[in-house]
Design a protein around this nucleic acid. Structure first.
Length: 883
RNA sequence: GCCCGUGUAAUCCAACGGCAGAGAUAAGCGACUUAAAAUCGCUCCAGUGCGGGUUCGAAUCCCGCCACGGGCACCA
């Protein structure tokens, strides 16, 4: 779709002219023109006065309450389109649930701690607290312009001591339960943001999710939460999350990364240990216990603690230099795909637990220190990595698995990695696959050299951050007592003013001066439980009361970006499970239904030579986009809105121009919510035009000779065909929209298209409707519209004399009788091809239909006199004659 | 390499296994107008990424590919 520059200008001018005229006109008669900029603020004020968005007392029956939640924003100070999409989706759901009679909790808050605020504040030389509070003020104003039905009395901010007191309280609960602990570990260090990061916050390229910096490994003592205790629950409970998109569940499952297998112990040969020492074991983890007879060597990570013990004198030099070489490599280099595998023999040996053979021990860069046991049994015949390693260093290769169901053995020039039948495995020969694995694990358990074991890729969650602007970790370091938690009654441990020296405080145990912890918590700690606080924001004694929380939670509908598939959504699930275990809550999954909305994208132009983005306003002809500088033909993409790509659209500008209702309608209509959405100014205008059509329709309804009553319960009596048609259109729309909003898939786009259809029908035919039918039709239209375009719907509701606010009405229920037609159309197929339509009574029986079909001209023509062998009748739909 | 998603008109998107089109955008034509805008009406445009299969009937289900997007990945 290509616009010339001229077209852009013409459109822009046309719009200007129109708005000018509109404003002038509206001063005389605001009733006859749709003027959102005038009417929207008025309605927002009125709803506030009426308290329509306040959270009602929850019902004792959980099913009568509805918790609609958007992922709360980080207060950057600027609302962007992604926010708009997120909150509008949740708002439609909240508004519709209210109309359906539910008690709705629809709150908003601020994920206010974190690096960006601190960085931004540092750049500007202001206090992060001031900066953040100012941003919140600004964004609240912007958000309110969207007409969201948010209960602002429950607003929370994670940087407020009244909130973070409870984050600290929860930390202490975790600490008391042994779920929070300190350990020295190799952690991810972000050199740009100068802090450590959790594994989840480093992408697969080894970069920080926020700063984009390549992370470094550093050995540091840090705070962790024992999320791995819940690894299995977190994985298996994914099966019960039917309201979640499958891909999010898959991503979490991948991340948790469960592997079932076995751990085997290889005894160190006596030569490698002091004879006075007890036996030393080298433990390996494998998912293929069935290949144990194929072990021809064992490999350790270079960092493995037994390396020194297993290194012989002759090998000391080369081992040491290899270790240094590996240590010098970045994580990324070491992990790079298809990397040549390098290693060094230690000289030491271990004993195969089953065959008693002497097995050489190596170290190699392809073995990771922190997965499994940091040691691998080398089975080159049946593992690709082991194979290439064995080939490179001339290690023995022992086949122990035969391809099942086939005499021919596998290609000897590569590892055979599938399950198969065991050979060269003593008593286990002939066993197959899983059975063989089990048999060998049993044997190991009997003889005590091994055990069936499951390992996870998931690591404990590193929560300390070496940053100022975060929730203080409520512990002190005492020279005598060590790490001491701050007692609950001393909470909150307040964040000192920026730049203030950290004063020592008395140790809770011994009373001597102690140093408060200066690291702060990962902001994901705050977001892991904020949704609980919304249910009980005034509680002074607890973060939330169990009873109160259980009236609203788990969240009925959660909406947010898919970028949190692993981060926030996994942490929150972990928190929920940990809190449930402590009996602080009565459920073990936080979010029943999850909608991950797609990105808001807009057109971008990039010069393929310079790789620079060109602003769309600089491009003269979009059908032939050229760089105004060097005339190069530009690449055209749709990409996420961003400043650096010059493709951002400011929601404020759109609202000023067209109103919030148009912005809402456009965003909901343009694409299904979970798909990416391409911003298009022309489509925005299209939505504006649609709202104007509704406006005009209602103006003409108002001007009718016979006064209509907005009422869903009008009495109708016997109606003529026209009136029946109108009622059918109305109730078809009610049914379709109700379904679009209630299924597992929320389909706002098709719901809006139903509204358009209804509007079109009523525009043409409302004149012909009697006043009761017209009253029902308009009432239904406005109530159906209310969740989407709340201001316009309420304005028209009022203009037409509706009772109360449109948002206080009942969601309509379709009248099945109104949907019935006098005749229905049956598709007549001959041999699967559509040949005719039959117009018949809706309750026609199959035999009559068959008779009708056989008598039709079409069947005579296409069957050519042949008797059909088969007749398929789909009631109410079609009949297929097969010859 | 493994896993998930998507692929329909110029564009964005619809179609419980049953007439490929609900809705919109763009384009074109017409009506209204002195004219333009707005408005209203009409028209144009795909056989559903490719190849097989199941079925009376496939965009939809199955198998094998391709393209794009995403997740995991030397994870033992």
């Amino acid at each position: 779709m290509a616009w010339s520059r001229a077209q852009f200008l013409v459109r822009g001018l046309a719009f200007l002219k129109q708005t000018e005229r509109m404003t002038r006109f509206d001063k005389q008669s605001s009733e006859n023109r749709y003027n959102p900029s005038e009417l929207e603020p008025e309605w927002q004020k009125r709803w506030e006065q009426l308290g329509l968005n306040r959270t009602p007392e929850p019902s004792a029956k959980r099913s009568e309450n509805f918790f609609a939640l958007s992922m709360f924003p980080y207060p950057s100070g600027n609302l962007h389109m992604g926010h708009v999409r997120n909150y509008v989706i949740t708002d439609v759901i909240a508004r519709q649930q209210r109309l359906k009679g539910k008690k709705v909790l629809h709150p908003m808050g601020w994920d206010a701690f974190g690096l960006p605020a601190e960085n931004a504040a540092n750049e500007r030389g202001v206090d992060p607290a001031d900066w953040t509070i100012q941003n919140i003020e600004q964004m609240r104003v912007q958000l309110k312009k969207l007409g969201l039905s948010i209960d602002w009395e429950r607003e929370i901010s994670t940087c407020n001591p009244s909130f973070y007191k409870w984050t600290q309280w929860l930390f202490l609960q975790f600490f008391a339960a042994g779920l929070a602990y300190q350990k020295e570990a190799n952690v991810n260090w972000d050199p740009i943001d100068k802090t450590v990061l959790a594994n989840e916050q480093v992408n697969s390229e080894g970069r920080s999710w926020r700063s984009g910096a390549l992370v470094e490994k550093r050995k540091l003592k840090q705070w962790f939460l024992r999320i791995t205790d819940f690894a299995d629950d977190l994985l298996t409970d994914l099966d019960g999350l039917n309201g979640w998109p499958e891909r999010v569940c898959t991503m979490q499952a991948n991340w948790i990364g469960r592997s079932r297998g076995a751990q085997f112990s290889f005894k160190l040969e006596q030569a490698e240990r002091d004879l006075n020492e007890p036996d030393l074991n080298l433990d390996v983890f494998t998912t293929r216990p069935d290949t144990i007879y194929g072990v021809t060597y064992v490999v350790l990570a270079p960092e493995h603690p037994l390396v020194a013990k297993l290194t012989t004198k002759q090998q000391q030099e080369s081992v040491k230099s290899f270790q240094e070489e590996v240590a010098a490599k970045s994580e990324l280099e070491r992990m790079a795909e298809d990397q040549d595998k390098n290693g060094v023999a230690l000289g030491g040996t271990v004993i195969h637990p089953l065959t008693g053979k002497i097995i050489p021990v190596w170290i190699a860069d392809y073995v990771l220190p922190d997965y499994g046991t940091g040691a691998v049994m080398g089975v080159p015949a049946h593992d690709k990595r082991d194979y290439s390693f064995a080939k490179k260093y001339n290690l023995a290769i022992q086949n122990v698995i035969l391809k099942a169901g086939n005499d021919a053995n596998h290609d000897p020039n590569q590892a055979f990695t599938e399950l198969g039948i065991l050979e060269n495995s003593e008593n286990f020969n002939g066993l197959e696959g899983e059975q063989a694995k089990q048999a060998i694990i049993s044997k190991a358990e009997e003889e005590g050299f091994g055990i069936g074991k499951t390992t996870y890729r998931l690591r404990d969650w590193l929560i300390s951050r070496q940053r100022y602007w975060g929730c203080p970790i409520p512990v002190v370091h005492c020279n005598i007592c060590g790490v001491v938690p701050v007692p609950v009654e001393k909470l909150p441990v307040k964040l000192p003013k920026r730049g203030e020296p950290v004063a020592s405080i008395p140790c809770p145990t011994c009373g001597r001066d102690a140093k408060p912890e200066t690291d702060t918590m990962d902001t994901f700690m705050c977001s892991s439980w904020y949704y609980l606080r919304y249910t009980d924001t005034e509680n002074q004694d607890l973060p939330f009361a169990k009873q109160t929380a259980s009236k609203w939670l788990p969240v009925d509908q959660y909406v947010g970006g898919v970028e949190h598939a692993i981060l926030h959504l996994l942490y929150s699930r972990f928190f929920t499970k940990a809190l449930a275990k402590k009996d602080l809550i009565s459920f073990n999954e936080p979010f029943k239904h999850l909608l991950t909305q797609g990105m808001v994208q807009a057109i971008t132009f990039r010069n393929p030579k310079t790789e620079k983005y060109i602003a769309p306003t600089e491009v003269l002809d979009i059908s032939n986009p050229l760089d105004p500088g060097d005339g190069t033909l530009l690449d055209v993409y749709y990409e996420k809105m961003s400043k650096s790509k010059y493709n951002g659209v400011d929601p404020g500008v759109v609202i000023d121009k067209y109103g919030a209702d148009t912005a809402r309608m456009f965003i909901l209509f343009k694409a299904p919510p979970e798909k990416d959405l391409e911003w298009d100014d022309a489509d925005v205008e299209g939505q504006f035009r649609f709202l104007q059509r509704i406006w005009r329709l209602c103006q003409s309804a108002k001007d009718r000779n016979s006064r209509i009553q907005l009422n869903l319960n009008n009495a109708f009596g016997e109606l003529n065909a026209k009136n029946k048609d109108i009622r059918r259109a109305v109730h078809t729309a009610i049914k379709a929209i109700s379904e679009d909003l209630s299924g597992e898939e929320l389909q706002f786009n098709t719901a809006i298209s139903e509204l358009m259809k209804l509007c079109n029908t009523l525009t043409t035919h409302l004149e012909e409707a009697n006043e009761n039918v017209a009253g029902e039709a308009i009432a239904a239209l406005l109530i159906l519209l209310a969740p989407f375009a709340p201001h316009l719907a309420d304005e028209l509701w009022m203009q037409l004399g509706g009772v109360d606010s449109v948002h206080q009405q009942k969601w309509p229920i379709e009248d099945e009788k109104a949907l019935i037609t006098d005749t229905i159309t049956i598709i007549l197929q001959i041999n699967g091809k559509v040949r005719d339509n039959l117009h018949v009574a809706p309750d026609i029986d199959a035999d009559t239909l068959k008779k009708l079909a056989l008598e039709s001209d079409a069947s005579k023509k296409w069957l050519e006199g042949a008797e059909p062998k088969r007749i398929i009748v789909v009631p109410g739909k079609l009949i297929n004659l097969v010859s």
